[in-house]
Design a binder for these strands. Structure first.
Length: 181
DNA sequence: AGATTGATCCAT
DNA sequence: TGGATCAATCTG
């Protein structure tokens, strides 16, 4: 069976469903120095125009426009002037939603934090709007990892205290790794 | 706990 | 146009 990038239909479903299923998928980066692959172990969902923790909650701007776009696009932005964050757009066009990749495993090493994920996989804002379903430069793959629900924990999202009641939504999903026990 | 760093957004 | 803000990370 040939490996292929996750299809658009995977991303066009409800964001919380996609977020949970992204755990254990592999984020692949083909750069000049070869192939890099990170197994996703932590994500956060940002869902809809009402979600005050979401960049899209104050409407469509040049920056957030991509979140209103087609599912399967990458949303990459610069934060705190120094770090990039990589997100995957979900759901139907016109409905702003995306999933932030917070942590991956590369060769068994935990890359913990969205800024480090981008640094390690050499993702920057030139990848903003990149189509992740095309299988070029940057895409996702199912490599057969199967995670039981019991190995997934949920928690509130990080760094969104300003979002009022939305800050408490348990929309962060993380694989419980053996090393955590 | 503080410094870093610059794009973005909104109000003045 | 100015300035507050920011989905983070490192150092001490």
């Amino acid at each position: 069976m040939k490996r292929q990038p996750l299809a658009r239909s995977f991303y066009e479903r409800p964001t919380l469903t996609v977020a949970k299923e992204l755990l254990g998928k592999h984020l692949i980066r083909r750069g000049e120095s070869g192939l890099l692959a990170g197994r996703i172990v932590e994500v956060e969902a940002y869902v809809g125009p009402e979600d005050r923790a979401s960049h899209a909650s104050r409407g469509k701007t040049k920056r957030t426009e991509v979140m209103f776009g087609q599912a399967g696009l990458a949303y990459v932005y610069l934060i705190y002037g120094m770090y990039h964050c990589f997100n995957i757009v979900t759901e139907r066009e016109g409905y702003p939603a995306a999933i932030l990749v917070r942590a991956v495993e590369v060769d068994g090493r935990l890359i913990d934090g969205p800024g480090k994920v981008c640094r390690d996989l050499k993702i920057d804002k030139t990848h903003n709007y990149h189509d992740l379903t095309a299988g070029k430069i940057l895409w996702l793959e199912d490599r057969g990892d199967r995670l039981p629900d019991s190995s997934i924990m949920t928690a509130p999202r990080i760094g969104v205290d300003y979002a009022g009641p939305w800050a408490q939504k348990p929309w962060r999903f993380r694989v419980i790794l053996n090393r955590n026990k």
